[in-house]
């Protein structure tokens, strides 16, 4: 099936097997291998990308379901020469080790801050109140991204810096 997506700002037209997941379309067809396959079942978050600005697990979506969508991957946030502030914060705080969950963490963190700004609640948000960006809120909202190297404290510090404009 032919689909059109805008990947990192670039219009792309792809002829895909309907079975191709968004993740495999990115990795195998568009060579955007920054989005990782950690579990392929929505259980780890390594494939997190932004679809029309919203973070999702790219492994649990068919590419054909995204015809017409704008998809942003880690490659669309910044490059090694011009890092996105969140990427810079992850680097500064050593918020990764093996690096395999990292693109998903960073995409997730960027979208998380937007969700937070929009007032979306989490289990840490008091009833009837707007969320405040406590460490507990960051931790809860980033729990869909598993890091087996366990850079969790560093990830919280990086996100806090990026959120506060220090990165």
């Amino acid at each position: 099936m032919r689909i059109n997506i805008t990947a990192n700002g670039e219009a792309r037209s792809l002829d895909l097997d309907p079975r191709t997941t968004l993740l495999d379309a990115l990795r195998e067809h568009l060579k955007l291998t920054g989005s990782k396959k950690g579990c392929d079942h929505g259980q780890c978050g390594a494939c997190t990308v932004l679809a029309n600005g919203t973070r999702i697990n790219a492994c649990l979506s068919l590419a054909v379901m995204h015809d017409g969508d704008e998809v942003t991957t880690i490659e669309g946030l910044g490059s090694p020469e011009t890092l996105h502030p969140m990427q810079q914060a992850f680097l500064t705080h050593d918020a990764f080790q093996c690096g395999y969950c990292t693109p998903g963490q960073i995409c997730s963190a960027v979208a998380m801050l937007a969700e937070f700004e929009a007032g979306a609640p989490s289990p840490e948000t008091p009833r009837g109140a707007a969320p405040t960006l406590s460490d507990a809120e960051i931790r809860e909202r980033m729990s869909g991204n598993i890091c087996r190297c366990s850079a969790y404290p560093q990830i919280v510090a990086a996100i806090r810096d990026a959120a506060e404009g220090r990165a």
Partner: peptide
Amino acid sequence: GVDRYEGPLKVTGTAPYAYE
């Protein structure tokens, strides 16, 4: 505590792992 040498590649998803 210098930043990771390969860090810029890892935070931008441009470090290719075996399958990539």
